[in-house]
Amino acid sequence: MTFKAFRVNQDGEEFSRGIEKLELDDLTEGDVVIKVHYSSVNYKDAMASVKNSKIAQKYPLTPGIDLAGEVVESNSEQFREGDKVVATSYDIGVSKDGGYSEYARIPSEWIVELPEGMTLEESMIYGTAGFTAALSIHRLEEAGIRPDDGQILVTGATGGVGSMAIAMLARLGYSVVASTGKESEHDYLKELGAKEVISREDVYDGGKIKPLDKQNWAGAVDPTGGNNLAAILGKLQYSGAVAVSGLTAGTDVPATVFPFILRGISLLGVDSVQCPMTIRRQIWNRMATDLKPEEHFGNMKNEVTLEELPETLNTLLEGKARGRNIVKL
């Protein structure tokens, strides 16, 4: 049996990417074989699909850190043929072949049963971005942030994490302020549930960051990091919290201890890659129930094929993505 997969390869300075015909023996090791129905497109996938990638840990590689489908072969007692499953994060699409393939072989300990009340397509509209947004909200809730505490800022609002976070927070009754550099997307963000849309400069204007600034927000979901995060820390209300999951605005955070010791704020790290399976299942189940903004899925979703992947990956690298791109296998 042969099947299609989108592969990247680099040998010295020679780099290539495109669709190839594979057999199961070409895939990396695992004890469960999945017929992939859907995958999704994340910034990490785009970074794994370029020359001299710092993400790809082996070549040739099938990228795609997310996948959803049906088990067709299993050497694990946990899964049986016909089970519908989801697999995201860990080393999928990094050092193990991922979801941009009609078949994938994945270690069983990385796989989650598809929750009741969620379709395979919906699970990939979520993907790692939706899981990260839900985990960010979970962390804010753990820090005691409630809907009546005040407004919640979401940065990178038109991206996958941002879009999902807005819709989920609004569903839970939070008052959401969305930050974006795309003026053309204000209506889209309000449709998702944002009460107010502000510019990137309203978060960080490019100047010197004040250690303590006006207390604007009770909490924040920040997938950008960098100077944005430093500015947010100084603008949180007393006992506020920010859940950070990304670095698109940079890795350095030029902050001081003042917001922490004078306002009692919390900086919450969000890791979707090695998140323990007990919490992972809990979050996926919430994404099928109280966090599920299904009325917005159609507006968020853009469906592409394997053949259309290169253009879609480039869109993410250029910062032009909106919502969630899913790959239908």
Rank of each mutant, 00 (worst) to 15 (best):
N42Q: 09
M1I: 03
S266K: 15
T28N: 01
F6P: 14
T158L: 13
P147F: 09
L22D: 02
G162S: 09
G98C: 07
S49V: 11
N52L: 05
G18C: 04
R105W: 07
L247A: 12
V8G: 03
G117Q: 01
T315G: 10
R139N: 12
M118Y: 02
Y103V: 04
D202Q: 15
E141S: 07
E295C: 00
S175Y: 11
G150E: 02
S16I: 07
Q215H: 12
P115T: 03
A133V: 15
L229Y: 15
E122Q: 15
K4I: 00
F6S: 07
R281A: 08
V177G: 05
I19V: 15
G159D: 06
E201G: 11
G193Q: 10
P310W: 13
H37R: 15
W284E: 00
A5N: 06
T180F: 10
V242L: 05
A46D: 03
I198C: 11
A241I: 03
G127F: 01
V112Y: 12
G240N: 10
T224F: 00
A231K: 10
P293Y: 11
K190D: 05
E116R: 08
Y90E: 09
D202H: 10
F260V: 12
D31V: 12
A48S: 14
L153T: 09
I55T: 12
Y174R: 06
V327E: 14
K214N: 14
I55G: 02
D205Y: 08
L233R: 14
M124N: 08
F6M: 09
E295H: 13
E121S: 03
S199N: 10
P254A: 00
I283C: 00
P147R: 11
I145T: 10
A5M: 01
Y38T: 11
I265G: 01
R286F: 06
V176G: 04
K21M: 08
T256A: 01
K292S: 04
V85S: 04
D187Y: 00
S179T: 06
T2P: 02
G144S: 08
W217I: 09
Q274F: 15
E29Q: 12
D205P: 14
P63D: 08
L267W: 00
E294P: 02
V242N: 07
T312E: 11
D149H: 13
P63V: 05
S179E: 12
A218N: 02
P276I: 01
V273L: 08
P276Y: 01
D213N: 11
D202I: 02
Q282T: 03
L262K: 08
G162V: 14
D148A: 04
A157N: 06
K35H: 11
T119Q: 03
Y43W: 10
I65F: 13
G193C: 04
Y59H: 12
C275A: 14
